[in-house]
Nucleic acid binder design. Structure first.
Lengths: 218, 218
DNA sequence: ATGTAAACCATACCATGGTATGTATACCCC
DNA sequence: GGGGTATACATACCATGGTATGGTTTACAT
């Protein structure tokens, strides 16, 4: 899981499949990669469509999937695509991944994560990098999964456990339910909820959920 | 507020400013509009940067702002930009606007809303359309803002009062606060909250808010 | 005119949520 | 070894949320 300078053959015409439910994003990806990077780009608007295309046309050199598109269901759809693509790299493209998502994505066998906040020219490099068998992840995120550093910027200093509890909060679950599912005592859950509200500046769990969603934490 | 075929002069080289915190989106917008549409594109990554650029370089023919970018604060940032752009069109570009946002955006004097789910080639047309002084809004959204008719379909048959209460719920307010602001007794608010939860299939207010947001009710 | 539905209020009860204190363990870093 | 932080649990108290029941008014349609 490294990012760095590698000698990559730029002459190969890579066959790339991109799936995203934002047609505009799709069009622009395709356009950029085709014109500026000389790749052969195929697009899809849902996971099902993407899988169908892979089955019909054979594995692509690199497949990029939007995490929030129809049919993805989190990493479940990712695994489906990986299984279909015959060992070739499948990566996730997303705007604001949470630490929890990062873990799940990489553990699911993805070849990497590309942020939509990344400069466009980096995309082509990332694709070639992944095609060479490496796993790609932006440096910002490496700090994040190594815990404290970058997370401080985005999530108001929520600890791992607090993020976990927050994810249950964001499903509208009760303290008791959360305690059961996480094998904790209810007072402990309350403590975490209180800490979450304090750190997010929320007056109650509902506001915490609202803010977490607005901040893209969940 | 119409969308339709209009004779638009395509020979003019429009000066367009696009602001979005997703650098990749920015790059691709710029690339598409420059290469495929022959526009002169300037980009910014926050509202402050966008405003600075407008001040420094004078009003643009069309300004596109991402609704969720730093500094926007909903329509507040939009109004700032409109004020600076000397009467020229300022539009919002977003992925998934809620009906409430639509109203606010259009009432704030925006020249239109462009969905990120729109095909890329439509973007250039929308920009020229707005530049000609029209307000642009995708047809899908016009249906949604036509109030009652479609709302009944989408909102699980919430009554007017319930929708009002829901909008306060969605801000994380307490029953007592809602009662005060709406000049109601607290039991009445509780009754409405209960009805909202029942109609939405939520187990508590937090789930109701989550569902309302996912359904685009608020 | 009668029925139906929405909105409103009241009282009461119990469940849930949130706060406060105190205690404890483990880990990391200096 | 001491200081900081994250985690965990207990007990207790009070605020808030949610449910139930019952009642009034208005409006609207059959």
């Amino acid at each position: 899981m490294m990012q760095g300078r590698t000698e990559i053959d730029e002459k190969v015409t890579l066959r790339v499949l991109i799936a995203d439910d934002h047609e505009m994003v799709l069009d622009m990806f395709a356009m950029y990669l085709t014109r500026a990077a000389g790749m052969e780009v195929t697009t899809a608007k849902s996971l099902d469509e993407a899988v169908d295309i892979i089955v019909a046309e054979g594995p692509f050199d690199v497949v990029l999937l939007d995490l929030n598109m129809p049919g993805m269901n989190g990493v479940i759809g990712l695994k489906r695509a990986i299984k279909q693509n015959g060992g070739n790299p499948v990566a996730i493209i997303t705007g604001t991944p949470t630490p929890r998502m990062l873990d799940e994505i990489m553990n699911a066998g993805s070849s990497g994560i590309v942020l939509k906040t990344t400069a466009a020219r980096s995309l082509a490099n990332a694709i070639r990098f992944m095609h060479s068998g490496e796993q790609y992840m932006p440096l910002e995120l490496m700090r994040g999964s190594a815990q404290a550093a970058s997370r401080n910027v985005r999530n108001g200093n929520l600890s791992d456990k607090e993020m976990t509890v927050l994810s249950y909060l964001a499903e509208g679950k009760q303290n008791k339910e959360i305690a059961n599912e996480l094998q904790l005592a209810e007072p402990t859950v309350k403590m975490h909820v209180t800490a979450i509200c304090r750190k997010l500046g929320a007056q109650n769990r509902t506001q915490a959920v609202i803010m977490a969603r607005d901040l893209g934490l969940v």
